Computed example of a mutant assay.
Amino acid sequence: MDVCSVGVYDSRSVCCSVNCLSTFKIKRMQDVIVYILLCMAVAFLLKKFVFKKKKKGSCGNDNNCGCG
């Protein structure tokens, strides 16, 4: 049984209905934040592993490139 059910009549009934509404809004806001962070994480991984930057020059073939 839900704490904020309609059949409960006491001094906390108005506060309980307000808390249920705010809990719903907080839950919805958390869902939005999670999806934004998920998209950012996927974008970071795609950028890091799929869309790698091309190396400039041929460091392996040239001894004067300064690669060590």
Rank of each mutant, 00 (worst) to 15 (best):
Cys59Tyr: 06
Val18Gly: 08
Lys54Cys: 01
Lys25His: 11
Lys47His: 07
Asp62Ala: 10
Lys27Gln: 11
Leu45Phe: 09
Ser58His: 10
Asn63Trp: 14
Leu38Asp: 03
Val8Gln: 08
Asp31Cys: 08
Leu46Pro: 00
Cys16Pro: 00
Lys53Ile: 03
Ala43Leu: 07
Ile33Ala: 11
Lys54Gln: 09
Ser22Lys: 11
Arg28Ser: 12
Leu45Asp: 02
Ala41Cys: 07
Lys53Glu: 09
Ser13Phe: 05
Phe51Asn: 06
Cys67Met: 10
Phe51Leu: 05
Leu21Tyr: 14
Tyr35Asp: 10
Val8Met: 03
Cys59Gly: 01
Leu37Ile: 06
Val8Pro: 00
Val3Asn: 07
Met40Gln: 08
Val3Gln: 05
Cys65Glu: 09
Met29Asn: 13
Ala41Gln: 05
Lys56Pro: 01
Gly68Ala: 10
Asp31Glu: 14
Lys52Ile: 04
Asp10Cys: 04
Met1Thr: 06
Thr23Trp: 14
Val8Trp: 05
Asp10Asn: 12
Asn19His: 15
Met1His: 11
Ile33Glu: 10
Lys54Phe: 05
Cys4Leu: 03
Ala41Trp: 03
Gly66Ser: 07
Asp10Tyr: 01
Cys59Val: 03
Cys4Gln: 01
Ile33Arg: 13
Gly68Pro: 05
Ile26His: 11
Phe49Asp: 04
Val50Ala: 08
Thr23Ala: 15
Gly68Phe: 07
Gly66Phe: 04
Asp31Leu: 11
Val32Arg: 07
Val34Arg: 12
Ser58Arg: 12
Leu38Ala: 09
Val32Asp: 04
Leu46Asp: 01
Lys53Gly: 02
Asn64Thr: 10
Gln30Arg: 12
Cys39Val: 07
Ser11Arg: 13
Lys52Tyr: 01
Ile33Phe: 08
Cys20His: 03
Ile26Val: 13
Met40Lys: 04
Ile33Leu: 10
Asn19Ala: 15
Leu38Asn: 05
Lys25Gly: 11
Lys52Leu: 03
Phe49Leu: 00
Ile36Thr: 09
Ser5Arg: 11
Ser5Trp: 06
Ser17Pro: 00
Asn19Gln: 14
Ile36Asp: 03
Met1Ala: 12
Asp2Gly: 05
Met1Val: 09
Leu37Gln: 06
